[in-house]
Amino acid sequence: MELVSNPIQAMQDTFTKPNRVFATIAKTHNWSWLPFLLVSFVSTLPIYYYFNFIDFDWYRNMVIETSAGDLSPAELDMMRQAMQQTQILWVSVIGVVFSSIISNAVLAVYLNYATKSDEECVQGFTDWYGFTWWVSMPTVVISLITMAIVLLASDNQLSPAALGPTSLAFILGIEMDSAWFSLTQAIRLESIWVMYLIAVGLSQWTQLPNNRTYLIACAPFVLIWGIWAAILLVS
């Protein structure tokens, strides 16, 4: 198989020729910094533009109404004063980067453990952690689509669900006051793409059979969503 000659080309080929990308990065070092930086930067853009575009008073009131519960009027006022546009913007921007760093670390631990049965697999945690940023590349495409939605929006009372245009929350019109909002916002169409890339990468990095690679790729997503849904159903 022809290998990729440079990391820029590898990022492009992740979308069209992922097999040769993962075959290449199995033999290279320090390429994963580029998808990490690209994914981290591009994923913050829709959030930055969103909080600079929306009617923040409307947003603040909506968040308070959906999450305040039985707080007293005085507590509501304190909550309202504490929610400042600049603060929320940067907390959200930093939060999306750190959540990606942490979730990818967890995924790397899982992949490192799940591939132990393959005696020929020599990759360790740091290798798998770099791997997770390559399988996160669909985030770049979705973030650009999201940014376009925000930039083209004519109403500055734009639902936060618009930040996940491929999520079930956005597709089904589920609002923030629904108990199912967080779960449906987490279930996104690009997750199928990510699962596919994980399976492709596993097929290049291990000698595991195809059915096993797809099982490993899909299991964490299905398990987390299933447990989350079960908790909502019984609560």
Rank of each mutant, 00 (worst) to 15 (best):
V4A: 14
S5M: 10
N6L: 06
Q9W: 10
Q9G: 09
Q12K: 15
Q12F: 15
F15N: 02
T16I: 13
K17M: 10
N19T: 07
R20G: 04
V21S: 02
F22R: 02
T24P: 08
K27A: 11
K27Y: 07
K27I: 00
T28A: 13
L34R: 13
L37N: 04
V39T: 01
F41A: 15
F41H: 06
I47M: 08
Y48V: 13
Y48G: 09
Y50W: 06
F53E: 01
F53I: 04
F56K: 02
D57M: 14
R60M: 06
M62Y: 09
I64E: 07
S67Y: 14
A68M: 09
G69T: 04
G69K: 05
D70E: 13
L71P: 01
L71C: 06
P73S: 08
A74M: 10
D77M: 12
M79D: 02
R80G: 08
I88W: 07
I88P: 00
I94M: 13
G95W: 09
F98K: 11
S100N: 11
I101P: 04
A108K: 07
Y113S: 14
Y113L: 15
T115F: 04
V122N: 13
G124F: 00
G124N: 10
D127L: 07
G130K: 12
G130P: 05
T132P: 04
W134I: 00
S136F: 05
I142Q: 08
S143H: 10
I145T: 05
T146P: 03
D155F: 06
L163E: 03
L163R: 00
G164C: 06
P165A: 04
S167C: 07
S167I: 01
L168S: 00
F170L: 01
I171G: 06
D177K: 10
S178E: 01
A179H: 15
S182Y: 12
L183E: 01
Q185R: 13
R188L: 03
E190T: 05
E190I: 03
I192A: 15
W193D: 04
Y196M: 13
L202Y: 01
S203G: 12
Q204K: 15
L208V: 03
N211I: 12
N211Q: 15
R212A: 07
L215I: 05
L215D: 01
A219I: 10
V222I: 15
L223G: 05
L232G: 04
L233G: 13
V234P: 01
